[in-house]
Structures are given as structure tokens and as C-alpha cells.
């Protein structure tokens, strides 16, 4: 089972990211469960959402405390919350950022967790370019699909078009396509 935890802020499409992951997994014939952190947070407050992907029915309802994948849609959260809490030592981190390891202040952490793969790429800039709105979620989902192969490109497109009908969907598909091709070169290391 893949367990993904998504950190971001209210208004950044965090819950939508989890739903896109689940919808894409569904399209790929997998079983998925997405759910928010059930908060009453307002725009700008830290928000968490979760997604489980498996090949067999998912019965657990507990929040994901030991993810193997983390999405960090807002890197300003890195030093506000313990976003890495419970992350698998072989985990994958998808980070929406233009900054390097040093700038992010992650060097020490990365040294302690050498097997964790971190991809830091400007997903929100991609959205800004295509949509005129800096919403990182679609790029993050596509980047995750590309890096892990856990979701097909077609399934990601299906999920996007289901969530955003019409022109907005088409533009988001462009965001996803660029992120899909672009993310693998953004693995960061120490």
C-alpha cells in the first residue's frame, strides 16, 4: 500500500491533490481512499490531506502517521510543523519549491535519512505559467506519477479532467504533462 500525506495551506488545493491521486488510481484499476485532515482551517492555515493506494480493499480509517510519500505544497511549512514525522526511511518527498537543499535548510535532515528521495521542483510556477494561478497540486500529482510510476500519465489526465471540466481541465493537463516530463531531473541530494 502506498500511503501519501500532503501538507499545504488552506486554499492551495491540498484536498484536491488527494482526490486527484485517488481518482487516478481508481482509473488505473486500483483501490484508493483520500481524505482531508478534517479541520476547520481557513485560507492560509496549515492543512493536511491523505491518500492510500492499494490493489486490495482499504479498510483502515486512521490518519496516515507513517507515510511512504510526502507532498509538501508549501515549503514555508518545513520549519513550522514536523512535516517529516513518521516518513518511511525509503520514502519519497515531493516538494513544491525553487530552492536548493541549503536554502531549504534540509541538509542535516537529508544526511540523517540518506535513502529518502526528495524531488524539489516549482510545481506552482508551472501552474502560474499555464493557468495564471499558482496552484501546486496538479504538478505535484503528475510529478509523483512520473517519479514512482504508481499512476499512469493517462490516469492523471483522467483525474484532472474529471475534477476540472472544460478549458480549465485542458490547461491543467498541460501543467501535468510538463511536470511529468520535468520532475525527474529535479531530484535533490547532499
Amino acid at each position: 500500500m502506498i500511503e501519501i500525506r500532503i501538507h499545504g495551506r488552506g486554499g492551495q488545493g491540498v484536498v484536491t491533490a488527494a482526490e486527484l491521486l485517488a481518482a487516478a488510481a481508481f482509473h488505473d484499476g486500483k483501490v484508493a481512499q483520500a481524505f482531508p485532515s478534517f479541520g476547520s482551517e481557513r485560507t492560509g492555515a496549515p492543512v493536511t490531506a491523505f491518500c492510500r493506494i492499494d490493489t486490495k480493499p482499504i479498510r483502515s480509517r486512521e490518519p496516515i502517521t507513517h507515510p511512504n510519500v510526502l507532498f509538501i505544497q508549501d515549503s514555508t511549512l518545513l520549519h513550522q510543523l514536523n512535516v517529516f514525522s513518521g516518513l518511511s526511511e525509503q520514502g519519497i518527498v515531493m516538494m513544491n519549491s525553487t530552492r536548493q537543499v541549503e536554502e531549504l535548510g534540509l541538509k542535516d535532515w537529508m544526511v540523517q535519512h540518506p535513502e529518502v528521495e526528495i524531488y524539489s521542483f516549482p510545481a506552482s510556477d508551472l501552474a502560474e505559467k499555464h493557468l495564471g494561478r499558482s496552484i501546486a497540486n496538479v504538478g505535484m500529482v503528475a510529478g509523483f506519477a512520473s517519479v514512482t510510476g504508481a499512476l499512469t500519465k493517462e490516469a492523471v489526465q483522467y483525474a484532472i479532467q474529471g475534477k476540472f471540466p472544460g478549458k480549465l481541465g485542458a490547461l491543467n493537463v498541460q501543467v501535468a504533462a510538463e511536470a511529468f516530463d520535468y520532475v525527474s531531473s529535479h531530484k535533490i541530494g547532499v
Partner: peptide, 12 residues
Amino acid sequence: MDGYILTHAFEE
């Protein structure tokens, strides 16, 4: 049905 846990869960 459990609030949030089910009402807000996105599943098959």
C-alpha cells in the same frame, strides 16, 4: 455515518 471520516472520504 461518521462525520468527516466518511462524509469527506473520497473512495470507491
